[in-house]
Design a binder for these strands. Structure first.
Length: 572
RNA sequence: GGCGUGGUAGCUCAGUUGGUGAGAGCGCCGGAUUCAUAACCCGGAGGUCGGCGGUUCAAGUCCGCCCCACGCUACCA
């Protein structure tokens, strides 16, 4: 039995995520985790909220609650939405957990001992009014190049010119608008990533099977300009993990916290500890420590392309630099962006559909199916209401839902609510089974290879086989003069339903459950031998005939939703 | 500016290491069918594979230049 460690990039705490965030890491990670579990493999699937950093502090400020409380509430909200979307995390942790505090400080101590951390005194912009140092993008002012009045300290959004905060004319705090800002000296810790460049470079070169998107981003950072740059790993904030060397104080760094990007990936490990400490799991080290049983683990990470540098370089640098035998990632699956109706999804502008809104409209499986079967694997892809409507109606309602509906109803009217008896599978049935075997192999290969769109296509083709078979043998005709033959045909078709349930479970877990419950069938194991699997429901086995598995999206609904979501979300 | 990723049928996209007349889904047209959520099934039309040039017996696939879209560019995360 293979062992799979799977992590999704951890979503930031400051609000409810939109569908672009969802398909960019959590949902494909869930697909893979469910698939590997279904194949009988041992899986540890982890995710968490990423809670530190300036935006969290500001969001809490805006909500007028202490940041600790804000994060606790938002973690709960995100956790509930994850459940509602069927994200099957073994544990959904928090980067602010005590476990992560301790582990992050541990890594810092190890890196310091290895000579990989040094102190830098630098000048940064400080807002007296806000009583805080300001990250570049939280400084606003007039662009020296184009005169745009709301240029940010890192870049002018109007002319796209790269800027330094000191370039801005009439700089002011983007938080309060105050112009009472000044340069102040502050001391920070830097991680000497440059010292690990050769090791990282070699490691990336070894990953010949990774997506081009992943390796090209990593190589760019390794080789651009002067090569991999050292990176500041501390910040002047209140909310975060206090800077320490292991359990010991770090002289001169008493008021600092670690940079969110330093502690966030470490949470992947700490999350496994949280899983154990919560009582849900045991022995996290056999997943994470090569010296304690993790040597046979295959570790797959899922993330949006913006996360790639941290996962290919900074985090591995932390692990390598520690000198300890931590499990490192075996495969990184990265995603492009899902756009919304001609533009980007945007959390700050409330543009697009957010997870809570999506579930208020339709069941999770509808979203899961469309998002996964259109996931932005090779390039950015586009959500339109029309495409969503078509995907849901054709694939789920017409192909899968209608298949179940037509055969169960037909059986009910001719044979009653039980699997009909008599006859046995003949050449036509064997042909169907052979075709399914072929398609199943394709489906499995696509899933193993993490080709998500392709696996969705293969699954859809498997669903279509049922309709093709019915169309070909036409039991509604057969039954007129050969009821036994019709019984055989109906029996095979009904046996496809539990098969479809198990094969479709990674994509549409709730519908899968409904199928099994309608057939009154226990959860089948992944089919090894289709001939056997398609005889699982014996003659006489009783089932239920339910209403439609998926209802369709009408043109009126589509137009209404399109209209409704055109204006953007009301800010909360 | 630098780097990256894309530009293939009306739309959304597949197209392994260059090799029989370029594919899928949707849409459209036609046919068949009536068990079913006016669903399903079969067939068809439709593309000078962004442009120009080159390598080759042979290029959507390799090379060069150009055009277009999007993304990243290290203190947002």
């Amino acid at each position: 039995m293979a062992r799979h460690l799977i992590t999704s990039a951890i979503p930031y705490i400051n609000g409810i995520k939109h569908l672009g965030n969802l398909i960019g890491s959590q949902l494909p990670a869930d697909l893979y985790a469910r698939y590997q579990r279904a194949r009988g493999n041992e899986v540890l699937f982890l995710c968490a909220t990423d809670e530190h950093g300036t935006p969290a502090e500001l969001a809490a400020l805006a909500a007028n609650v202490p940041v600790v409380e804000y994060c606790r509430e938002m973690h709960k909200v995100q956790s509930e939405l994850a459940d509602a979307f069927g994200l099957s995390f073994d544990f959904f942790g928090r980067s602010s957990s005590p476990q992560n505090h301790k582990l992050t400080q541990h890594f810092a101590g190890r890196l310091h001992a290895a000579g990989l951390i040094y102190e830098v005194t630098e000048s940064q912009i400080y807002s007296v009014t806000d009583n805080r140092f300001l990250p570049d993008r939280y400084i606003a002012g007039i662009c020296p190049a184009c005169g745009y009045e709301r240029a940010r300290g890192d870049q002018c959004e109007n002319c796209t010119k790269q800027l330094n905060p000191t370039d801005l004319i009439n700089p002011r705090s983007a938080i309060s608008g105050s112009t009472d800002i000044a340069m102040r000296e502050t001391k920070h810790l830097y991680l000497r990533q440059s010292a690990l460049k050769e090791q990282l470079d070699q490691w990336i070169d070894e990953q010949t099977d990774w997506p081009i998107l992943t390796t090209s981003i990593a190589k760019k950072w390794l080789h651009d300009g002067n090569g991999l740059q050292d990176r500041g790993i501390t910040r002047d904030l209140d909310w975060g993990i206090p800077v320490k060397r292991g359990a010991k104080a770090w002289p001169g760094m008493e008021d600092k916290v670690f940079y969110v990007w330093f502690d966030a990936p470490i949470e992947y490990i700490a999350c496994a500890q949280e899983w154990v400490d919560s009582g849900e799991g045991e022995n996290w080290k056999r997943w994470w420590r090569l010296d304690e049983g993790a040597d046979d683990v295959r570790y797959t990470q899922f993330m949006g392309k913006d996360n790639v540098p941290f996962h290919t370089l900074s985090f591995p640098a932390t692990l390598i630099g520690s000198g300890e035998p931590w499990k490192r990632v075996d495969y990184i699956k990265s995603f492009n962006y899902l756009n919304y109706d001609g533009g980007q999804f945007s959390t700050s502008e409330g543009r697009g559909v957010f997870m809570d809104q999506a579930l208020a409209l339709l069941p999770a499986d509808n979203w899961r199916w469309w998002l996964l079967s259109n996931c932005p694997e090779n390039s950015d892809s586009e959500f339109t209401w029309e495409s969503f409507q078509t995907g849901v109606n054709k694939d789920l309602a017409d192909v899968l839902g209608n298949f179940v509906s037509r055969i169960t109803k037909f059986c009910q009217s001719k044979f009653g609510n039980k699997i009909p008896d008599g006859g046995s599978y003949g050449p036509v049935e064997n042909e169907v089974i052979s075709e399914l075997a072929l398609r199943l192999a394709n489906y499995e290969a696509a899933m193993e290879g993490l080709e998500i769109r392709k696996s969705a296509q293969e699954l859809r083709a498997i669903w279509a086989v049922g309709n093709e078979y019915l169309q070909k043998v036409a039991p509604w005709v057969t039954i007129r003069d050969n009821p036994t033959q019709a019984a055989v045909q109906v029996r095979l078709a009904l046996n496809l339903i539990p098969l479809y349930a198990i094969l479709s479970e990674p994509f549409i877990p709730n519908a899968s459950k409904m199928l099994l419950s309608a057939m009154k069938a226990p959860t089948p194991t992944w089919p090894i031998d289709l001939d056997t699997a398609l005889k699982a429901l014996k003659p006489g086995h009783v089932f239920e005939v339910n209403g439609p598995l998926f209802s369709k999206i009408s043109d009126e609904q589509r137009d209404l939703w399109q209209e409704q979501f055109a204006g953007g979300r009301e800010s909360t």
